[in-house]
Design a protein around this nucleic acid. Structure first.
Lengths: 239, 239
DNA sequence: CGGGTCATTGAACCATATCAAGTCCTGTGG
DNA sequence: CCACAGGACTTGATATGGTTCAATGACCCG
């Protein structure tokens, strides 16, 4: 076992330095806290790292932690009995993982590349909230955002064609500027099979539509899955 | 205009009687409040009724109210430019409508049959929460539940076949026991077109799969869209 | 009874899945 | 630095589930 539970151990160094240096300061659900509350809150956190493909949370496990992604990308997915898989969401830096409501966690969460997460015990959130109820509002905000994204994806899965799905997916990625600051190229973090599982397609259909967009000169792909959107507005129209 | 905004006017009679007689007492997000808080909270509410097909909330409107469904069913949906429609969720008694986070509301909500809703101004929730922060946790719980349902539906839309979708839909309805207490038959509240828009299918495919399930003797349909699930476990297997 | 909406059914078509090669990367060991 | 092995991706041929188009049938309400 080297999932979230077994890795939660030892003391974090806590304190405000940790938060002030945090790459997602201002994005995470903790960002709503004032300086005083943040100091107290940060003492409750532990930072953990995961490598590509590592399982972070599992369906059915006791829902003991929530976390905030500080670095990297995760995929959240569900499985059907026969192995069919649906990726439910991608988590980017600043996104919240887990929830403080359910007794059991209901999804699989897996690191896509190198990932760092700032973790809190659900039970400690409750006691912290006794004096800092605004943390609930903040978590509610993150949950509401996830709901909004999930519902957008419902429209995509239910009513969009394969090409529209691919275009929407690329635009989603481009919003998260995954490349260097200077370059418009960004890395596609998912494999074709994962893209397929995210868009409700097969790997072949994904591949064909990538090729088609390349032929239409709307995108270009470079070594190492680096993508350049050549015609942004055309892609937007398609989506 | 006779949507939610224009109908919010006049004084509710408030007080605990209202809540004690409420058909969704114990289901709604207000149920977490203790007697004292509930009395205060209920004074903020107004009850409004809607008839079949009436628009309750609109995409783009100022997000001024949240509500709790006390009677009836609503459909929450999104539209694409070209008119394609996806129903995002069905709201049943006890379910929350709207949110207290966003500045604008992002969906269309329409009454399916006769509907009653208990309404609160978002701005009043904020001031109420100053002394009763547990209301946030309660709203968070409802939001989390909606997220969970949305994610289940992502799997359905992305990875299930038409027949699996229909079976899942019928089981969803059966969980909400829409019929009389004594009878196992329940009413299908949606038209075929609406079912199609919920499941990401066409009306014809929905119809064909209903027929097929009838031929297989797994379900029966009576006058007025009353449905009987003959073989519950077979339906469960399919889903 | 008659007109409209809603639902069913049939036939043809098509977007996507499935099956099957092949090619291109990428990391590894020599 | 090259050879090679295995996985990832692409492309082609074929199959098929679901859509589309069209006609008919059932039901409800005036």
């Amino acid at each position: 076992m080297n999932n979230i539970t077994s890795l939660y151990s030892g003391n974090g160094f806590g304190g405000l330095d940790k938060c002030n240096n945090c790459p997602v300061r201002g994005l995470s659900f903790c960002s709503a806290l004032d300086t005083l509350a943040l100091e107290e809150f940060s003492a409750l956190s532990k930072t953990r790292s995961f490598t590509d493909g590592q399982l972070i949370l599992t369906e059915g496990e006791v829902n003991e932690y929530i976390g905030s992604i500080t670095e990297g990308i995760v995929k959240v997915y569900k499985l059907l009995n026969d192995g069919r898989q649906q990726i439910i969401s991608l988590g980017f830096p600043g996104d919240m993982l887990g929830n403080i409501i359910d007794a059991e966690y209901n999804y699989f969460v897996e690191a896509v590349g190198k990932v760092k997460i700032c973790l809190y015990r659900v039970s400690r959130i409750a006691s912290f909230a006794a004096t800092n109820p605004e943390i609930y509002l903040s978590i509610l905000g993150k949950t509401n955002q996830q709901l909004s994204h999930a519902r957008d994806w419902l429209v995509l899965l239910g009513r969009k064609t394969a090409k529209e799905k691919i275009a929407s997916f690329l635009l989603l990625l481009s919003e998260h500027h995954l490349g260097s600051e200077t370059d418009q190229a960004f890395k596609i973090p998912l494999k074709r099979q994962e893209i397929a599982d995210f868009l409700g397609l097969t790997i072949e259909t994904v591949s064909r539509n990538f090729s088609s967009l390349k032929n239409q000169q709307l995108i270009r792909e470079q070594a190492g899955h680096m993508l350049i959107i050549v015609d942004y507005s055309a892609l937007k129209n398609i989506s």
